[in-house]
């Protein structure tokens, strides 16, 4: 990738991350930390490439470890974040739920 273009990407992504978080209420800090933890689980695709291009046994072992860890990050991050967010409900939602039940 062109070096300068990569720097543009970094700058824009950094501002995006900052802006997205800056408006988050305290009550969502834990799910958000967990959610951003899930997002860097994209490291899985890099680990897949590393394993896919591995030739020697050592490279395969390292790549395999990377994919196991990356998949754990992605799947685990998703499951716990989803479980936490599922629990957030407003008083109104609860009443509606009771009525419909």
């Amino acid at each position: 990738m062109e070096g300068v273009i990569a720097l543009y990407i970094v700058m824009l992504a950094a501002f995006t991350g900052y802006e997205v978080i800056a408006r988050v209420p305290v009550i969502l800090h834990t799910p958000l930390m967990s959610g951003s933890n899930f997002v860097h689980g994209i490291v899985l695709v890099g680990a897949m490439v590393a394993l896919g291009r591995a030739d020697t046994l050592l490279e395969q072992v390292i790549g395999f470890t990377g994919v196991v860890l990356g998949a754990g990050n992605a799947v685990g991050g998703y499951v716990v974040t989803e479980r936490m967010l599922e629990m957030f409900r407003a008083s109104g939602d609860r009443k509606k739920k009771k009525e419909s039940a």
């Binding site: 990738m1 900052y18 800090h29 930390m33 951003s36 933890n37 695709v45 590393a50």
Partner: peptide, 21 residues
């Protein structure tokens, strides 16, 4: 290193958001 744009963007977004948090 892998020239993987998705990793760069996701990683930097999390890095900057995480630093702020």
């Amino acid at each position: 290193v892998l020239e993987n744009a998705a990793m760069i963007i996701a990683g930097i977004v999390v890095g900057s958001a995480g630093t702020l948090l």
